[in-house]
Amino acid sequence: MTTLTRQDLNFGQVVADILCEFLEVAIHLILYVREVYPSGIFQKRKKYSVPVQMSCHPELNQYIQDTLHCVKPLIEKNDAEKVVVVIMDKEHHPVERFVFEISQPTLLSISSDTLLSHVEQLLRAFILKISVCDAVLNSNPPGCSFTVLVHTRDAATRNMEKVQVIKDFPWIVADEQEVHMQEPRLIPLKTMTSDIVKMQLYVEERAHKT
């Protein structure tokens, strides 16, 4: 067992790569399971040794990639507290929030031989939980859309500035309407604890969706 700081081996970057790859798969799957887009645009792929549904719509795929490219520098610096996939009704009020709460240790105690396979196993469980979450959620009203929120610190937003310009993908501070949800029901889906990251996923569901 070795103890490393975040600077050693550029571990922040490794964690950000792993998490962003996972979040990309998770976002595609959420959009499929919650029927935000027609099922015809999704194709079955294999990720983390399990079948998942991934969009083949170029514009949507690019949007998700650009979003995560901008979030990655925050995760790298341990400045992303939560990444939230919000599903909104026609009036742009949230009906569901898939909250990925991320916590990274300052000191990393790793055993490298088992590290990656262990993390992959843990992430697989998240994917499997998302794929069956429709069983515990109520149906969404027709015409829903989505957005991604990131909870960070004001001072950390400068880490995003460069990539926002490169990608021509600006970010803004969320309005109350985009964040506030009336009487949410909280449904815990999965928690993981590994050497490099702790993460929990829960859904906040609006009590009255229609």
């Binding site: 949007y63 859309s145 991604v148």
Partner: peptide, 20 residues
């Protein structure tokens, strides 16, 4: 999470552009 600096208020950000 142990954010790297205690200073700075928390903010919630979202992309300015909408998905298709």
């Amino acid at each position: 999470p142990d954010l790297s600096s205690a200073s700075g208020k928390k903010v919630i950000l979202l992309p300015c552009k909408n998905p298709p």
